[in-house]
Design a protein around this nucleic acid. Structure first.
Lengths: 244, 244
DNA sequence: ACGCGACGAGAGCACTGCTCTCGTTCGTGA
DNA sequence: TCACGAACGAGAGCAGTGCTCTCGTCGCGT
């Protein structure tokens, strides 16, 4: 896919990447609010107006960073899931790790990525900074973490290892869940899907609270607490968990 | 407490309030990023420098708004809890409503306040906008919602209506929970406290996801979904829930 | 009644996002 | 091959921002 495009197009790609890199650096250093086009340009040795050849506005730069961030967490979640399976495979067991292990692997990856990139996490899961807009292109990368979680649950369900919840579900929610599983092309009962969506949102509640300081003076053993909470989340969607 | 403080001090209070009101208006209209001291001053018919007599910096204004917002959600949660009890009392039953009803009342109040004041919610539970600082004074109001939830669980526990979780808890977490319940002066097993903290964080995960658009094209029946998820949260801390 | 401190106005500094213009350079179609 | 248009970088400039400093004025306690 990296065809040899004339020097111009090539340069464009490199410069675009350099701008994003520098912007990410400033983002990590000072947060989204302090990200300044002029400062980025200055650092790159160009004048601010030149930067507008690459990004039509500051918000567009931010949007690009948001997209990259979504893909980064998604990637982290996916590779963590694959790594968990690979580890298990190497140990000689089944091809895939236990559902609980896979679930925690994904959750842990999200948390660790968030701790390593707090400002980028804030960009995507904190308050929407620009003008409340979520372009269509954002939807797909934004779902990667969710899809990793879905995969874990779907596999467990297919293996008959899922304990289905017996709670009644409001009809409207059942409808939403049916269209959701249809869209995602997975076979999952509505009740499980609803628990899954809930667990998905709650996962980011846990991570966000830790990251944004709500756990200050409340919880010190953050990692242990997270681990335990995530296991409970797994249980709530019906995944079998070890040693309760 | 509203002693007659001479016209000057009186004026100071009124102007401070007017500034905060106007700032809140701009916050609601455009979000924290667009909140401008100059615009606030302009709207109030004064010059920007005059505003610095009341707030030493833009961040200080924001901090004041954050504090007010924490108190507003807290207040909403508390009155919702009291209202639930009052309703139940009027109907002739016990003095307090059922634990599940009280729990959902608090959660619902948080969600409704968030939907009514999205930008203020983002200010306190979204990314920390200013310089990552959480002044000591923030801690107390920030805990009001949590304390309302604690109250629900504590009362249920005191009434013997709580089903204690039997999961093992990491020792470090147990320690955190013991100091937490000691600080809060409530009598609660560590396991319940841990579940409670988790549920607390997860509640805001649910609300945040709905508010920040992560549920777009995923869930349409937001209210029903929330209601169901919150009930499950109640169950996870051991509260008895009706009709499962 | 005096004087100190709080106050509002205004000018000004350094910075921001963004626009417009103007030469230059590159790539491509004739 | 070469000429023309598109892409590009530099610079000036505009409107707006947070914040500081100075300077009259007015209110209140001594």
């Amino acid at each position: 896919m990296t065809a040899i495009k004339g020097a111009r197009e090539r340069a464009r790609g490199e410069i675009t990447a350099a701008i994003k890199d520098e912007a990410r650096k400033q983002l990590a250093a000072e947060g989204a609010a302090k990200l300044s086009l002029r400062a980025v340009a200055r650092e790159l040795g160009m004048v601010s107006s030149a930067l507008y050849r690459y990004f039509p506005s500051r918000d567009d730069l931010l949007t690009a960073l948001i997209l990259d961030a979504y893909n980064a967490v998604g990637q982290a979640a996916e590779t963590a899931l694959a790594a968990a399976d690979a580890r298990r495979g190497r140990r000689g067991g089944a091809a895939a790790a236990t559902p609980a292990a896979r679930w925690t692997a994904v959750c842990r990856a999200v948390r660790e990525w968030a701790l390593a990139h707090p400002h980028e996490y804030a960009l995507i899961y904190g308050s929407p900074v620009p003008g409340y807009r979520a372009p269509e292109t954002t939807a797909e990368p934004a779902g990667r973490v969710a899809r990793a979680l879905i995969e874990v649950v779907r596999d467990a369900y297919a293996a008959g290892a899922l304990r289905e919840p017996d709670d009644p579900l409001p009809d409207a929610v059942v409808g939403d869940m049916l269209t959701l599983v249809a869209e995602q092309g997975v076979e999952l009962p509505a009740g499980v899907a609803a628990r899954l969506v809930g667990a998905w949102a709650q996962l980011f509640g846990l991570v966000g609270f830790e990251l944004f300081g709500q756990f200050n003076r409340v919880i010190e053993a953050r990692e242990e607490f997270f681990e335990q909470a995530v296991l409970q989340l797994a249980r709530s969607v019906g995944l079998p968990t070890p040693a309760r």
